[in-house]
Computed example of a mutant assay.
Amino acid sequence: MPYEPPTHSVERSIRATTGARVVAGVDEVGRGAWAGPVTVCAAVTGLRRPPEGLTDSKLLSPKRRTELAARLEGWVTAHALGHATPQEIDELGMTAALRLAAVRALEALPARPDAVILDGKHDYLGAPWRVRTVIKGDQACVAVAAASVLAKVRRDALMAELGRDHEEFAFGTNAGYPSPAHRAALAERGPTVHHRVSWAYMDALPRWRHLKKVRTHGPEEAAECGGQLGFDF
């Protein structure tokens, strides 16, 4: 399906209205997975013409994503990744874990951004960051699209590494998301240290339900996730 390439229009608007000089695009991956970290990338791209084919990582084949990520690493002005572990997700909830991972990424950049373009409609960063949320920002904004691709490729590689010690879970192909092989391995073997054990999928595992970590999710997070925390959303 044809798609419009991302532009710098949002970044130009932010620069013109706020005087910001360093604008970072931020996107996450791993939010709906059952296992592995949630990973956030912050990318600064300036106003240069992006590599051909850049768009939301979900619209690209794995091969094309990997090729594009290799080009982006040398093309972006700067980028950094931040992760929140499954244990941090269990303890804090997804919204707070996203903020933790995003702050880790932003603070790892060589220069602190004056403004942030955040993919989606929810500002999980908040003060003191100056944030502009953009629905489908990973398709509309160059910096967010770059962050989307870099985050996805890095997390997929990380999950493939984890999968070498847990082959039955097929992390190398499902990246920790729900899949038939993942469900079957959970039912047979129970969760690994890489699983988010406070999530609702644990309720469907009678043999392993006693391992579930109980945590009270705030109303804001429940609303953001459609009231189905832990399911494939």
Results as ranks from 00 to 15, higher is better:
residue 173 T to A: 12
residue 152 K to M: 10
residue 148 S to F: 02
residue 37 P to T: 05
residue 20 A to G: 02
residue 165 D to T: 13
residue 24 A to M: 00
residue 12 R to H: 14
residue 89 I to G: 01
residue 174 N to A: 12
residue 137 G to R: 05
residue 68 L to F: 00
residue 144 V to S: 05
residue 40 V to N: 09
residue 111 A to L: 12
residue 6 P to L: 00
residue 128 P to L: 13
residue 92 L to I: 07
residue 163 G to W: 09
residue 172 G to E: 11
residue 43 A to S: 10
residue 82 G to L: 00
residue 2 P to N: 04
residue 32 G to V: 04
residue 28 E to Q: 14
residue 182 H to L: 12
residue 84 A to P: 01
residue 194 H to W: 15
residue 87 Q to M: 08
residue 34 W to Q: 09
residue 231 F to D: 13
residue 178 P to V: 01
residue 80 A to E: 06
residue 64 R to F: 12
residue 108 A to V: 10
residue 178 P to C: 03
residue 15 R to I: 13
residue 163 G to K: 07
residue 104 R to Y: 00
residue 98 L to M: 13
residue 20 A to M: 02
residue 116 V to G: 09
residue 170 A to Y: 11
residue 160 A to W: 12
residue 187 A to E: 15
residue 224 E to W: 13
residue 150 L to F: 00
residue 202 M to C: 04
residue 110 P to E: 11
residue 185 A to Y: 07
residue 14 I to R: 05
residue 17 T to C: 11
residue 158 L to S: 13
residue 189 R to E: 10
residue 59 L to Y: 03
residue 108 A to W: 03
residue 198 S to V: 01
residue 5 P to G: 04
residue 117 I to E: 07
residue 226 G to R: 11
residue 198 S to Y: 01
residue 190 G to H: 02
residue 54 L to W: 02
residue 100 L to V: 03
residue 111 A to D: 11
residue 26 V to Q: 08
residue 170 A to W: 12
residue 195 H to L: 04
residue 134 V to Q: 11
residue 146 A to Y: 08
residue 142 V to F: 10
residue 46 G to I: 04
residue 88 E to N: 06
residue 121 K to V: 15
residue 179 S to A: 15
residue 215 R to E: 00
residue 130 R to I: 14
residue 176 G to R: 10
residue 49 R to E: 15
residue 2 P to F: 00
residue 96 A to H: 08
residue 203 D to E: 15
residue 159 M to H: 11
residue 172 G to D: 11
residue 58 K to I: 06
residue 92 L to P: 04
residue 138 D to V: 08
residue 211 L to M: 13
residue 95 T to H: 02
residue 82 G to N: 03
residue 131 V to R: 10
residue 154 R to I: 02
residue 62 P to K: 02
residue 209 R to K: 14
residue 128 P to T: 14
residue 156 D to T: 04
residue 162 L to F: 15
residue 179 S to D: 07
residue 15 R to G: 06
residue 24 A to K: 01
residue 46 G to A: 03
residue 222 A to C: 13
residue 188 E to F: 02
residue 125 L to R: 03
residue 2 P to A: 09
residue 153 V to H: 05
residue 128 P to A: 14
residue 132 R to M: 14
residue 193 V to P: 12
residue 79 H to M: 07
residue 148 S to D: 02
residue 190 G to V: 09
residue 10 V to S: 04
residue 167 E to I: 00
residue 11 E to Q: 09
residue 140 A to L: 15
residue 62 P to M: 06
residue 87 Q to A: 14
